[in-house]
Amino acid sequence: MRQMRLGAVSFARRKGALALAGVMVIAVLAVALGSYFPRRGGSAVTREFTVSARRFSYSPERLLVHQGDRVVIHLQPLDVTHGFYLEGYGIQTYATVGGESTAEFVADKPGMFRFRCSETCGPLHPFMVGQLDVQSGTRYTNTVFLATAAAALMVAVGTVVYVGRRGRASDTDS
């Protein structure tokens, strides 16, 4: 009897662990799928931005481009020396007050990428963040977010169905 109970517990735990592993796989696939969403049709263009930097924010704080666009960013610090480091692309530059530096790259990866100050500029320096949205697909700005949000809905519904079936199985047993 005890052996059977132990077997049931171990089976349930294995099933639960497998379900959680499944959730992780879904999440990873969602990020991967969102990142490699087929790029939007149409020709790439050059998009040029002048980004002013003041402690502890950038203006404009969000930049929107299309996947494949050539992006040119002119960094203009207004109060102290500020930097510009773009996560995911590894682009880095800095400029002093009154000066300007330029970063150029091709936005070939879709998704949201934070850019942050890379020159210590004051107390909230580690939180001086801006955002580059690289649009892919036809209408939506961020396929990575959309894919993961869809995965979240799928996981929520799937979990409710899973616990619902557990309930039905127990009802049948009893």
Binding site: A30, A152, V155, T159, V163, R166
Partner: peptide
């Protein structure tokens, strides 16, 4: 994103199982 998304989704699944 490959770490944050699975973490949040596992948290969501565990929360719903607990809610049940």
């Amino acid at each position: 994103p490959y770490l944050q998304a699975p973490t949040l989704l596992v948290g969501l699944a565990l929360s719903i199982v607990l809610g049940d």
